[in-house]
Design a protein around this nucleic acid. Structure first.
Lengths: 261, 261
DNA sequence: TGTACATCAGTGAACGCGCGTTCACTGATGTAC
DNA sequence: TGTACATCAGTGAACGCGCGTTCACTGATGTAC
């Protein structure tokens, strides 16, 4: 009974996956807004009307793709973060940032789907909110951890050097009562800056706005990540550290730099 | 002869403008990729085939809109920058950043058209490159000016505190031989960071990624701009300065904050 | 183990729609003498 | 100033296309006794 039920369910789940994969492939070729149910059906050699057995509408298929994309980039960041020593906060920041960029580079259209301009005529339902926060949570956690460990250095420019308006301060304080518990107000604002810088750089790179300005994106991105890590107060990543502490613990050293989820 | 020729040409130019305006309005309602020649013609009460007297194809119309958008945001930044005292570099940075965000807020779909994910099936021709650099040039000029005036403060974290790879250094040096003549290598990299942060924040805000994290966008943006100004080495904007020097020179004080080009 | 029934996967035609672009055409507006 | 001609603006029908979605239907796969 349950054996055959799951058999049918398994076939069904496989087809759902195949449809999403075909849709992803099509999106990679033509862009998100060119996604067509008929083309997906064509690629799978089935009748277009049959797609409706698996997705009630085109929008729902889009939603599934968006959720998958958020999950994929979130998982990539989680995996990269988990590979680091827990108390190597600069390293964790760097690893998370690089994993996000790597994922974006490997899946440019999926990145554009979630971080580019919204698809016209599509309204993101509630279901996408939770997966969307996954990647953000990796970055937040690392800063919260650093704060808890007392490892956040006095930020420079010093907290008092750049005036922060009462409204901005209140806004930052609100966040310390939520996800960023215990984090210094100044650090909260710097985190927001670093967060938007990270995705701003990746978007600019992927959408072609660095053409003519930056050629070696890898190196400049790395420099930007280091700068922002220090800016937030995580300190610069010391090259020696990984050798002295990380390597000798027998962690996977040859982990691929590009994480594909 | 030339009088009547220009008369006809003027009517023609007006219609070109009307078509672009209608297209912009439609874009604002439905998004860039939903732009339809037939809908534009419908709105103007003309035959769809007649659009072809003014634009040879849909792509050319899109290109015109892109060029206009780049020009508009570029002009907004230029105007904002020009209103500042030439040697108030922190003020110029702040004014330029705010003008860009204001423009984006007033013209979200035009912003998305140029800074969002590329429109599928559309390849930007050479014509868009020059207008695209206009807004960047405002930011670059202000940093070059500050450098020339010796006003760029020793950046913090200090230049040596965060290691910069040789590749990144070479890349930055290449820029000092081009548009950023004379600027310190460390400052070049910080400028790239600040530049991508600026657009990253605006994009996140406009595309809904700050929902749930930031409520008072104005205040947080302002704080971010100040932070980045100081990060680049332009110093924090002193509130007193505008009063002491700017106001007494009789410049337009009540200039609207939102620039519409 | 065998049979009657229910559930599901997949089909193919159809509806109604909008799109970009082309073409031969009609009038109106300018130009040249 | 008046007339013959050229140039341009605008029309409307048509081509060929692809789309999302619905519907009544056929077989195959499971379920219950």
């Amino acid at each position: 009974m349950s054996a055959s039920a799951t058999a049918r369910a398994r076939v069904r789940a496989e087809l759902v996956q195949e449809i999403k994969d075909a849709a992803r492939r099509q999106m990679a070729a033509e862009g998100a807004s060119a996604l067509s149910l008929r083309a997906v059906a064509r690629e799978l050699g089935m009748c277009s009307s049959n797609i409706y057995r698996y997705f009630p509408s085109r929008d729902q298929l889009l939603t599934a793709l968006i959720v998958d994309a958020y999950d994929a980039v979130g998982e990539a960041a989680e995996v990269a973060d988990a590979r680091c020593e827990r108390d190597d906060f600069a390293g964790r920041w760097s690893a998370a940032c690089h994993s996000i960029r790597d994922w974006a580079g490997s899946n440019p259209h999926e990145y554009a789907l979630v971080y580019g301009s919204p698809v016209p005529g599509y309204r993101a339902p509630e279901d996408t909110i939770a997966p969307a926060t996954r990647v953000t949570l990796v970055l937040i956690s690392l800063i919260v951890d650093a704060t808890a460990a007392g490892a956040v250095k006095a930020p420079v420019p010093a907290a008092g050097d750049v005036p922060i308006s009462p409204t901005a301060r209140a806004e930052a304080e609100r966040l310390t009562e939520g996800p960023m518990t215990g984090v210094d107000v100044d650090t909260v604002i710097r985190s927001l800056v670093a967060w938007t810088q990270l995705f701003g750089f990746i978007s600019f790179e992927l959408f072609g706005h660095l053409v003519g300005a930056v050629e070696k994106g890898d190196a400049i991105f790395d420099a930007a990540v280091e700068q922002m890590g220090a800016f937030v107060g995580l300190g610069a990543r010391s090259v020696g550290r990984t050798n002295r502490e990380g390597a000798t613990r027998g962690r996977e050293r040859d982990a691929r730099r590009t994480v594909r989820a």
